[in-house]
Design a protein around this nucleic acid. Sequence first.
DNA 1: ATTAAGTGTTGGTCGTACCAACATACACAG
DNA 2: CTGTGTATGTTGGTACGACCAACACTTAAT
Lengths: 153, 153
Amino acid sequence: MLMPRHDTGRTPSRLEGRATWLVSRAYLRSSGLLGAGFETHGDGLRSYHYRLLAALEEWGPASQAELGRKTAIDRSDVTAALTELESRTLVERSVDPEHKRRKIVTITPAGVERLLELDKVIDGIQEEFLAPLTPAQRRQFIALVSRLVDAQH
Amino acid sequence: MLMPRHDTGRTPSRLEGRATWLVSRAYLRSSGLLGAGFETHGDGLRSYHYRLLAALEEWGPASQAELGRKTAIDRSDVTAALTELESRTLVERSVDPEHKRRKIVTITPAGVERLLELDKVIDGIQEEFLAPLTPAQRRQFIALVSRLVDAQH
DNA sequence: ATTAAGTGTTGGTCGTACCAACATACACAG
DNA sequence: CTGTGTATGTTGGTACGACCAACACTTAAT
């Protein structure tokens, strides 16, 4: 071994208590869990795909631009993600008869199926992610973060 | 105008209440604020640079590998970030006399100065980020996220 | 003397989030 | 009807944080 040197690995105290730092660490943990879940049960899909499938299942067919606005995903990223979903026949794209530039995207039965599977995986990850908190704390946490996120400013 | 089409922009209900989703939105907001702060007051520095300066100021000179472990930044990214810090004379690198492969990194007075400036900027961003919460809620939020983040595995 | 392990560096990848530019399609004002 | 403006889908970028593999080199352990 080469000089113990005692790396505590602890975070600089400057960061430790700062909300932005803690949120970035929480995100790291969260996206790590999600990434692992998608990797083992997701057939190469990622969060963008899940978001799009969720929007389509909930609100029905929509144009790509609409999807982009509703999911807060950039148009260009919507295009790319839909191409991947389409290649797995989880969605279908068809030209809007009333507007030949626009494409109407529809989720397929297979798409719904996969969405429901992903739901289960993601629910499991919520459990894992929130494990350190009691049920009451979980509710509190979710309420507080919701408030933070809904800030229009 | 081209067909109102009514984009509420609201999130799919599947996502709305999930902790991992909320955390990702919170992180987005947080890193947006930080990015803007660094852009206007940071002289091109980013969060990696701040982390490294903070570690150096708090724990004194360290080798790059040590820094990497203490800040949880990959060795290769430490190398790159230090090169940028060095070019601004905010840190100095010197070969460890006891180990010719190792480089000891030291923060310069200018580095400390810049760190203190960044501290102020980042403190302001905490305020902005936490604005939607009352002081009691802020303490609660920080306590809960800390607990989430300290989860070992 | 070998082997094992740590160190700094180079050169990649991935995922999320953006942005700019473009061709095409449509809506509306005149 | 004609022009102007705006929406749409697509391509091809950028940034940033996080990671990984490989390499040359140095030192420690056996």
